[in-house]
Nucleic acid binder design. Structure first.
Lengths: 297, 297
DNA sequence: GCAATAGTGTCTATGAGACAATATATA
DNA sequence: TATATATTGTCTCATAGACACTATTGC
């Protein structure tokens, strides 16, 4: 169309003369919480190994937060989306391409990066442990898989004039070879007459850079929330797995024991039988399953 | 701590000499989908009015998309979060402050704004119709509440080498005094061996600026998804309402009829009885309820 | 009395929680 | 054979869907 604006310009003319820079601009980064699940050493020939939930962290080699641990991430380029930037980072860091990737939340707190105005569009990725070969050497950073636990510490409730605020404090623990990082993150739901708002706050962050404790907490909440109404957890499994393994993964995500019979009924339509069984366990062999694509309802 | 980096600088020294600008920076905007519900005229003295879901759109007074309709929004300032920017916009546009506000998604498609690199952090707001007094004149833009319908048009399924893609095409219709905007948005879920991804695409957009059809579709999906496991819909109600009104709101959001008895059982713990009743209806009076803060589980 | 809505009762199907019973590898 | 896990059965309880029945107002 050839509409002319108040300066008498057509759209083509307007765009040709347009110059950006009227507004101050932030740097745009992505940060990723990359989850995987690993096995512990089995302590007896017939005992099953346990599952551990892990995320990838990178030791910072410069200021700010020099020596502390941060989520993998980087700046977004003008010719890519945040999602493409996240996929690129993931590829560079772990070499995997076909991965479950989900946008979590965009963090923009003032001062969240001491250098300058940086907002972070965060993503969550789920990969199976057989995909988690780190590209060694390529990027000379110290990338390490930390075991993660995320546990409710305390629950508080405060009465306001026109509503109330409920705060859940979670302890986030990250462990790997000698390193132990601890953070406490509070999730507050504020209920007022005509609104409801949820907020995260970092109460303690030892060894974790920036506001990354918040991002990890956000990812855990999302993962826990989605685990029991989607097939999301299957992206953490290898090609073939037993139902007990799958249950262990659910349990380590939810930090809660589940009942076997009910669990099997629940996931039945998310998986497909194979004709293979586990071998050389000191007990009855277990049928192997694979993900059922159609199960997603 | 006084760690020194590879240049021999402490953190303080590093920050003092740090200069941004190594990376190109995008403009950061927020766009908001502000929902409300209004009544139609009742066609007979004893018939109940129907409910309509509406969102606020603003006619663009300049290029690009001159004359088309866009979501309210604006640029984020360096001293505020995206959430604060959204709340500020909402305040400027409608005058309301205590409002349900939820971050939706950050859109960063290349070329989504023809002027320059702009990414949009989108929000959804829910306000009751008695709060929806537009601030007339203040901002001289043409802000109008459009009636919204969002309906599944078509469902497609494509088999891929290592998975499949399921596409749902939705028709988005926006109507207000003589204006009728139409868009078709496709939501595609791509399921591959080790990944699952969801994508939105605009197939048609008549009269809607930018990628705003996508943002509205995203908001509708979120709203529909949350309606039946949270008390979110109560933010669209006035202080006092009947259960039939609440059911109508659920129905207009879900575009689906619900059964009365089951609905009442379901929302029972989300509301609180009052001792007031409707009057002067041509039929049995209806008890008025209000939101139960504790109902949120 | 009629029209229109308000509110409740009940039958059934489904799915989760709880727990028990049976099956089968290997040292 | 003992140990540890695999797999299935079943009882109960809670909840949603479906439908029917009763209640109450204004004209």
């Amino acid at each position: 169309m050839d509409l002319r604006d108040h300066n008498g310009l057509t759209e083509k003319e307007f765009l040709a003369q347009y110059r950006a820079g009227d507004y101050e601009r932030p740097s745009l980064a992505t940060d990723m919480v990359i989850f995987t699940v690993t096995d512990t050493e089995a302590d007896s020939y017939r005992r099953l190994p346990e599952k551990e939930l892990r995320i990838l962290l990178i030791r910072r080699g410069g200021h700010p937060y020099f020596g502390q641990w941060a989520l993998p991430g980087g700046f977004v380029r003008p010719d890519e989306t945040t999602e493409q930037a996240a996929a690129r980072e993931l590829q560079e860091e772990t070499g995997v391409a076909d991965v479950y990737l989900e946008q979590l939340y965009t963090f923009s707190d003032v001062g969240r990066d001491p250098r300058t105005w940086v907002i972070s569009c965060s993503y969550m990725a789920l990969i199976s442990s057989d995909q988690m070969q780190l590209k060694a050497g390529d990027d000379a950073d110290a990338a390490v898989w930390f075991k993660l636990t995320y546990r409710l510490l305390r629950e508080r409730r405060e009465v306001l004039e026109d509503g109330y605020a409920k705060t859940m404090e979670y302890e986030l623990k990250l462990c790997a070879e000698g390193e132990e990082l601890t953070a406490v993150v509070a999730r507050t739901v504020t209920v007022r007459a005509t609104s409801t708002a949820t907020n995260y706050n970092i109460l303690l962050s030892e060894g974790l850079a920036f506001d990354h404790a918040k991002i990890i907490a956000c990812a855990m909440d999302r993962l826990r929330g989605k685990v029991d109404y989607t097939d999301i957890a299957l992206h953490l499994m290898q090609e073939r797995f037993t139902l007990t393994e799958l249950q262990q993964v659910y349990e380590v995500i939810l930090d809660k024991e589940l009942l076997k019979a009910a669990f099997r009924r629940k996931v039945a339509h998310l998986v497909e039988e194979t004709d293979h069984y586990t071998e050389n366990a000191g007990h009855r062999p277990s049928r192997l399953y694979r993900r059922n694509w159609e199960g997603n309802r």
